[in-house]
Simulated assay, not measured.
Amino acid sequence: MTNIAGFWVRLAARLLDGLLVGMVVGTLIFVLQLDTGSQVVQTAESVMAMLYFVLVPVFLYGYTIAKRVLDIRIVKMDGSNVGLGTMVLREVLGGFLYTITFGIALIVSAFMVGLRRDKRGIHDLIAGTYVTHDRPEHWKREE
C-alpha cells in the first residue's frame, strides 16, 4: 500500500459525490415532475446512487468524479484496479452492514479510517481495498 489517502479527503470526496448524485437526481425529478413521496421514486433514487458508487469506479480506474477532482482513487490491496465484484462488496455489502447496525458500524468505520495507520474502513476490509493518491499505472507511463 502506497500513498494512502486520509480521512478528510475521503470524506470530502464522498460529500461531493453525494451532492453530484443529488443534483442529477433532483434535476431528473424536477424535469420529469415526479412525486418525491412515491416509494418508486425513492427506490429509483437509491438505485441510481448505488449504481454510481459501484459502476463509476469500475470504469474510471477506481475514481468517482469527486475522487478524480481530489486525486484519490480506490484500488485493490495489490494496487490493481477494482472490478465489479470488488465494488459490490465494498459499496453494497458494506452499506448493508452499516444499515443493519443502524449506523454504528459506519461510525466505527469512520474512526478506523481516521485512526488506523492503513486508513482502511470496514468496507475496505470487506472488499480488500484501500484509497490512494497514486495514479493508475498506464497514466504514470504517459506522464
Rank of each mutant, 00 (worst) to 15 (best):
residue 5 A to S: 14
residue 7 F to S: 05
residue 7 F to T: 03
residue 9 V to A: 02
residue 10 R to Y: 06
residue 11 L to W: 07
residue 11 L to F: 12
residue 13 A to C: 03
residue 15 L to P: 00
residue 20 L to R: 07
residue 21 V to E: 04
residue 21 V to K: 05
residue 21 V to N: 05
residue 22 G to P: 07
residue 24 V to S: 08
residue 24 V to T: 11
residue 26 G to H: 06
residue 26 G to I: 07
residue 27 T to K: 07
residue 28 L to D: 01
residue 29 I to V: 15
residue 29 I to A: 11
residue 29 I to D: 06
residue 30 F to Y: 12
residue 31 V to M: 13
residue 33 Q to V: 10
residue 35 D to S: 09
residue 38 S to H: 09
residue 41 V to K: 10
residue 43 T to I: 12
residue 43 T to M: 14
residue 43 T to Y: 13
residue 45 E to F: 04
residue 49 A to S: 14
residue 49 A to M: 02
residue 51 L to A: 15
residue 53 F to H: 13
residue 57 P to I: 06
residue 58 V to N: 06
residue 59 F to I: 12
residue 59 F to W: 14
residue 60 L to C: 08
residue 61 Y to N: 12
residue 61 Y to W: 10
residue 62 G to F: 02
residue 63 Y to R: 03
residue 66 A to G: 01
residue 69 V to D: 01
residue 70 L to E: 00
residue 72 I to D: 01
residue 75 V to F: 09
residue 75 V to C: 10
residue 77 M to D: 14
residue 77 M to L: 15
residue 77 M to Q: 13
residue 79 G to S: 08
residue 80 S to V: 07
residue 80 S to D: 11
residue 81 N to D: 15
residue 82 V to A: 14
residue 83 G to I: 04
residue 84 L to Q: 04
residue 86 T to N: 09
residue 87 M to K: 07
residue 87 M to F: 09
residue 91 E to H: 10
residue 91 E to F: 07
residue 92 V to R: 10
residue 92 V to H: 09
residue 101 T to H: 12
residue 101 T to K: 11
residue 102 F to C: 14
residue 102 F to V: 12
residue 102 F to L: 15
residue 103 G to V: 12
residue 106 L to T: 01
residue 106 L to C: 12
residue 109 S to V: 11
residue 110 A to Y: 15
residue 112 M to L: 15
residue 113 V to G: 08
residue 113 V to D: 06
residue 115 L to Y: 15
residue 116 R to P: 04
residue 116 R to V: 03
residue 118 D to I: 09
residue 119 K to E: 01
residue 119 K to Y: 05
residue 119 K to I: 01
residue 123 H to A: 11
residue 123 H to N: 14
residue 124 D to T: 05
residue 124 D to M: 05
residue 125 L to P: 00
residue 126 I to P: 04
residue 128 G to T: 08
residue 130 Y to D: 01
residue 132 T to N: 03
residue 133 H to F: 08
residue 135 R to L: 10
residue 138 H to D: 04
residue 139 W to H: 02
residue 143 E to H: 00
